[in-house]
Design a protein around this nucleic acid. Structure first.
Lengths: 343, 343
DNA sequence: CTCCGTCTGTGAAACGATTCAGCCGATCTG
DNA sequence: CAGATCGGCTGAATCGTTTCACAGACGGAG
């Protein structure tokens, strides 16, 4: 139904080759012919068929992005970074949400393979899907996002989450907290395990034992899970109740914060809270959240750059980049005495 | 480089037609042959080339989704609904973010047209892009999401935002508020204008004039914009300061809330706040936000269903669905006397 | 034995854009 | 003026899959 290059050629009285030249190498076509072709194109409303181009070219103009949780603003920020770079390169992004479920992830990877995407950016679920290996064997570039590549034959851009956990814990320890809770996930995500490890190491170094640390492991990393963890923390006898909470992500930290406030626990006076990711909502919370900041958008754009470089071929060298997170201190962990208003 | 159906045929000692039959009409192939072909497929790691299928079939297996702001959880929820339905139908979703900018929207639509998507779901920017018309003329189904179609020759699923605005305002008026602020956008989005109109109508009916309403019109509908509006509201002389704020979306409401709390204004005691969309973060705010609820995920899934139906052809009738929002009352607008804790 | 229908499988055309060898005429070179 | 060069254009091959008319083989019916 839509006009093809053949229709355009016919209307302009030239061959299809010439139309293609107008489109791709306009300099090689004389002014007069070019205008005639252009006129025909607009008259017929011709739009290139990307599939036909792709079929001939052997590669498409799309990349795939597979994230763990589209509802987590961290990933939408990453997606933003990816989109920026991809669009600038003329590529469309197929965004897939795995919901941290290997089956969904696997199904998405199959679709992306059929679409012959130029490459895949992925924050994988706990274990690396076999489909991912298959994809790479087929020569499809795969870049891991927010997750370190297990081997040097692959690009990745990750965050030093052990350091992140450490920063969070040390901040609290410096402020005298000696009973700290870590609210992490049981999903087995390395990111979470590392954050946990960082917190643990800092606590051990400061107190000489692990006794000061209590760990909560909800199934998922959501606001709801945070709320539940907070309820359990508040339910702890006062003498053993943690005075500070480190959460594996901001979603849970917001849940913890909400439940604390709801139950009349003062933040940070009674319980200090530190989140992770530093999503925008962290700063926007009614008690602004101290959080471990990761360069969210940059993570996405850098990953996309690595992918494009690999897709281009020509002497690409795999790199496993690790960026250092920083701690952003806000009111959820420190009492600012110069605040207006009062509680 | 990747194996083609021809390679498979060769290895299995059959013709390409037979391989295709195994893939698409396995019943028509004898058991023995089928197994030989299947064996060849796995041995070669054959994956269909979707572009070639598409080229032949005349239509691709993707749909486009263009949203106003990927960072707004409302849209990620919509995207979730869309993805559910699309994936069930074996379609991939190309997610595009227009950032409420017509140029970006237009560029995305061009790409989608080249990709020959089966259809486009879009929450358009203020004015309907000419590309949208072009697309429809080319026979590509377009469904408007969260925006009423201007004519009956097109599907849309929208929310009665006048009613939504009214619900928000009436709730506040019933509680005795007589100075109300509306924080909306200057972007000209009909959604925002309707919300404004609903608030205005309710205020006029209750007070007999528009004097009780103060309007703030930030450029964008973000958390930051909400904060700035709140600062201006707080800066108003006490005698004229609004005692309640209706925001055009939750992002801004959260910004308002944050700034109020930061400045020591008690919510809801000094100022009540009502948001719009009822994103998850609304309930998770430290002062849970009263908000006008829209069926976010359902909006997306229903839109996708309409699109698929239209794409299927066969006697599709265009419908312009309008769903009624409801008000979810939380603590940002009502003092719950039975709360634990105190201020 | 012939005719027919059924079951399997074949092979070529088609989808739309790109590319590339090659053609034609004009201009330049010596 | 012959030969080389060049700009501008043509037309066919190609990419990988689907589809469809048709070809063999085989068994049963008459």
């Amino acid at each position: 139904m839509p006009a093809s290059i053949r229709d355009v050629a016919e209307r302009a009285g030239v061959s299809v080759g010439t139309v293609s030249n107008v489109l791709n190498r306009p300099g090689q076509v004389s002014e007069a012919t070019r205008e005639r072709v252009l006129e025909a194109i607009t008259a017929l409303g011709f739009v290139r068929n990307e599939s036909a181009r792709h079929l001939r070219a052997g590669h498409s103009r799309t990349i795939g992005l597979v994230v763990l949780d589209i509802a987590n603003p961290f990933f939408t920020d990453v997606a933003r970074g990816v989109e920026d770079v991809a669009n600038r390169a003329g590529l469309a992004v197929i965004l897939c949400n795995s919901d941290d479920r290997p089956e969904k992830e696997s199904a998405h990877l199959d679709v992306l393979a059929e679409q012959r995407v130029q490459g895949v950016l992925i924050t994988p679920t706990a274990e690396l899907s076999p489909n991912l290996q298959t994809l790479r064997r087929r020569g499809v570039p795969v870049v891991l996002v927010d997750r370190r590549a297990p081997s040097p034959d692959q690009c990745s851009i990750a965050v030093d989450d052990v350091l992140g956990g450490r920063l969070a814990a040390e901040h609290l320890l410096e402020r005298g907290h000696r009973r700290i809770a870590f609210v992490g996930g049981a999903s087995g995500l390395p990111q979470v395990q590392e954050r946990h490890a960082g917190v643990e190491a800092a606590v051990r170094e400061a107190t000489g034992s692990d006794d000061a640390l209590v760990v909560f492991s909800p199934e998922v990393l959501t606001v709801e899970a945070g709320r539940e963890a907070a309820a359990r923390i508040v339910g702890t006898p006062a003498a053993r109740r943690p005075t500070a909470v480190v959460c594996a992500n901001d979603l849970m930290a917001l849940g913890v914060l909400q439940e604390m406030v709801r139950q009349g626990v003062r933040v940070p006076d009674d319980v200090a809270i530190v989140g992770y990711d530093d999503i925008d909502f962290a700063a926007a919370a009614a008690v602004p959240l101290t959080s471990v900041r990761k360069p969210r958008v940059a993570l996405g754009s850098r990953a996309a750059e690595l992918l494009l470089d690999e897709a281009r071929g020509e002497g690409h060298v795999h790199v496993q980049e690790v960026v250092e997170p920083t701690l952003v201190v806000r009111e959820s962990s420190v009492v600012f005495r110069d605040r207006e208003g009062s509680r």
